[in-house]
Simulated assay, not measured.
Amino acid sequence: MIKNWAIIRDILIRLEATSTPNTALDANQFPEYPEQEVAYNMRLLSEAGYIKANILESKSGDGRIAAALARSLTNSGHELLDTIRNDTVWAKVQDTFKSKGMDMTFDLVIMLGKKIAENFLLS
């Protein structure tokens, strides 16, 4: 499995858009992506402290995630989303990583996103 930034951004955006603070998103509510990829990226976001989630590992030995529920954004999750929500900033972040041939990490995405947003604001 890979860290999929399109899925990560979509999870964050959809969590923020929920109608109540306690509305959970299930990994199967993202029909445009394979459920296991969504579940895996929910687990990554949870482990990194960007969302609160319940992740249930399969006990059948197949290596799958049996269930993944994203429950809410943490303050750090809001900060990450604030950095990458804007489509123009997000496109520039992706283009920069691609042109430099570097892997996108949470810390680098936040740092670069803030710098790009700052440049937009000051120009």
Rank of each mutant, 00 (worst) to 15 (best):
I2S: 15
I2A: 11
K3R: 15
K3E: 08
W5D: 11
A6R: 10
A6Q: 11
I7E: 09
I7P: 12
I8N: 05
R9V: 07
R9G: 15
R9D: 08
I11A: 02
I11C: 09
R14Y: 03
L15D: 03
E16A: 12
E16F: 01
A17Q: 06
A17P: 00
A17C: 01
T18P: 00
T18D: 03
S19W: 11
T20H: 12
P21Y: 15
P21R: 13
A24D: 13
D26K: 14
N28G: 01
N28Q: 06
F30R: 04
F30V: 06
F30N: 05
P31D: 02
Y33N: 07
E35S: 08
V38R: 04
V38L: 05
Y40T: 13
Y40W: 09
Y40S: 13
N41Y: 03
R43P: 00
L44T: 02
L45Q: 02
S46W: 05
E47N: 05
G49K: 04
Y50H: 05
A53Q: 07
L56Q: 14
L56Y: 13
E57P: 04
E57V: 09
E57S: 06
E57R: 10
K59I: 09
K59Y: 07
S60D: 13
G61T: 03
D62P: 00
R64N: 11
A68V: 01
L69E: 09
L69A: 04
L69S: 08
A70L: 09
R71E: 14
R71N: 15
R71C: 14
R71M: 15
S72D: 12
S72K: 06
L73V: 02
L73R: 01
T74V: 09
N75R: 15
S76Y: 11
S76A: 12
S76D: 13
G77A: 06
G77E: 04
G77K: 10
H78P: 02
H78G: 10
H78S: 10
E79N: 15
L81D: 07
L81A: 02
T83A: 08
R85E: 02
D87N: 12
T88A: 15
V89C: 12
W90F: 13
A91N: 14
A91Q: 06
K92Y: 05
V93K: 08
Q94M: 06
Q94L: 13
Q94P: 07
F97C: 04
K98E: 15
S99H: 10
S99G: 11
S99M: 11
S99Q: 14
K100G: 11
G101F: 04
G101W: 05
D103Q: 13
M104A: 12
M104R: 05
M104N: 01
T105K: 06
T105I: 02
F106E: 04
D107S: 14
D107C: 03
I110T: 10
I110C: 04
I110L: 08
M111Q: 08
L112V: 01
L112G: 01
K115F: 08
K115I: 02
K115V: 03
I116Q: 02
I116D: 07
I116G: 07
A117W: 05
F120Q: 10
L121T: 14
S123F: 07
S123H: 08
